[in-house]
Design a protein around this nucleic acid. Structure first.
Lengths: 332, 332
DNA sequence: CTGTTAGCGCTTTCAT
DNA sequence: ATGAAAGCGCTAACAG
């Protein structure tokens, strides 16, 4: 690699000051059009690309955002990332993607890392840190928006879908179709989404006069593999189960496999409902009934809140979406 | 957000020079242990996080890598990313993830962007640019390794799996099990992997005395949805097909759905083979026969080549893996 | 072992 | 419309 071309190299070659080069490449208007053209020709000829470290140091802006997700292998988060990326790219921003692998320590480390990189903003998805852990970490950042979690005072905004309402829809849909032994495949309650699902599931059952049977609640990580294993165990031990509500679609697809392996018919013997409406949900067989969450929009909205905060525009700090029940074959 | 704490703030508060602070936080040994302890206490108390822009400008190192993939929704690339990330994190490096969405213009733009960010190295996966387009873009980077593509002179290394050999295994496996009308679901030949698959498929058929029938070659993007649609059309028009080799597992899972929808039995009526061995391959029903590619290792290896190049260590510039045929129910 | 000086490449401010 | 000087926050090189 040859030595980097700097702004001084361009200035020298174009017979102008570095300042003029700066004006030309940054589309300032205090420059004669023909001077700009001349400079840009030289920029092109020398193959000059500005050093964004130097630029960031001088301007205190990096034109970069960070996005932190718990699992990059989950299409739900991929869709959020894409939504965020789309809007970011429209503003000539780009994105540092951080994958915490559901690890709280790693989440905290990523937050510090992004701070060091001086990103202009951070989209934090499905954080598994507590409010108390989060507040100090967020307070030092320029702008943070929370996805899948309600607002904290140290954040500029929050956008989430009402998971509790979603669970209500799922449970009631199953009750209406005559199911009574409704099991739940969820997880530890270390995130807002997990707590909300659990509480929506339980309270809706109770409202309909059905006692919550904790032996019908399976604990599993939100992965397909875990969904398969946990559903397998649960269904073997509880033959009476006639419906299964899953934390997300990955778990639901795993549960579908478990049923297949056990010779349990879906939806005849057992109905299954997922959550998120990832693309796979419509493709499996039987197709999954699930809750559609506007994942792409979630990401886009989170980034737009960051941009609003950066330019100091007044904006709505909270945005809640209500999920939509998409009825397919797995729970007609 | 309060004003950023800088190294001078720390120096002042600790009653030392900025240099001493620098030595303390960078674990240099020209510093008295107790001075270091003292400085680090102040660092902690003030909540100082070094500015990596300033550091990068001064050292000409950013401790950041870039990774460019065509599709972040494909678990195969996710696994490569994870492999890369794992090794990067071990070295306290972090990663800029760039998603080209199979768009060559965007790939080129990402390359320029990473150049501006002055990343220390780039892992470029399944590039869809030609050699001629790539060479000048790579020449300006500090270190680039190519994944899923053979070496170019402007790159420090390349690591890929022998897709042609993989296709040979797949075709021969099907021939041995008595299949004769073997269709192929692939795509435009704008990447090494795509060309190699196609040529492996065709040459192996010919070697076994079977003429290549181009009407048995379906063109589809490497997505599940496209696999479903293209397989559906192909199988409807060519009832005689008794086997289907797919570009990757996503396409194969789509094809599986198409068979299901058409009432075509797998593997009785038709055998299906995928490629990559993503987690989903083992979970669908029937489980997919596929080619295992060491995706995690691909990412790890690419990053290790970058580190070797950065420190100037002599290293093997090319690494080719041979895929392994994993026989499951879809093509026993 | 510690401090001082200079400079990384850019933009901002102030002259002209 | 253009240029000169200063500084962003850090570390390398040198001095002591």
């Amino acid at each position: 690699m040859r030595a980097r071309v700097t702004i001084s190299d361009v200035a020298r070659a174009a017979n102008v000051s570095t300042q003029t080069v700066s004006r030309a490449i940054n589309n300032k208007r205090e420059i004669r059009p023909e001077t700009r053209r001349h400079v840009l020709t030289v920029v092109e000829r020398l193959g000059y690309e500005p050093n964004s470290l130097a630029r960031g140091l001088a301007t205190d802006r990096t034109a970069a955002l960070g996005i932190i997700v718990p699992d990059i292998a989950n299409p739900f988060f991929v869709e959020i990332i894409r939504g965020a990326e789309d809007l970011a790219l429209e503003h000539d921003y780009n994105i540092f993607l951080c994958n915490t692998v559901e690890n709280p320590a790693r989440e905290a480390a990523m937050l510090k890392l992004l701070e060091q990189k001086r990103v202009d903003g951070i989209v934090l998805c499905s954080s598994c840190l507590t409010d108390d852990e989060l507040q100090p970490l967020l307070a030092r950042q320029r702008a943070v928006t929370l996805v899948n979690r309600p607002l904290l005072s140290a954040a500029e905004g929050a956008v989430w879908s009402d998971a509790e309402a979603g669970m209500r829809m799922s449970v009631e849909h199953l009750l209406h179709s005559g199911r009574r032994r409704i099991a739940f495949l969820g997880h530890l309650e270390n995130t807002y989404g997990r707590r909300a699902r659990r509480s929506g599931y339980e309270s809706t059952l109770r409202e309909h006069g059905i006692a919550v049977d904790s032996s019908l609640i399976g604990s599993c990580m939100p992965y397909m593999k875990d969904g398969l294993a946990t559903a397998h165990n649960l269904l073997q031990e509880h033959r009476e189960i006639d419906a299964l509500i899953c934390h997300n679609d990955l778990v639901a697809v795993g549960a579908l496999q478990a049923c297949h392996n056990l010779g349990v018919g879906v939806p005849d013997d057992i109905a299954i409902i997922g959550c998120d409406d990832i693309a796979l949900a419509a493709l499996v067989c039987p197709a999954l009934t699930t809750l559609r969450v506007p994942s792409h929009e979630l990401g886009r909205c989170a980034v737009s809140m960051i941009f609003d905060a950066l330019v100091g525009v007044e904006h709505q700090a909270e945005r809640v979406y209500t999920p939509e029940l998409i009825v397919r074959q797995s729970a007609p």
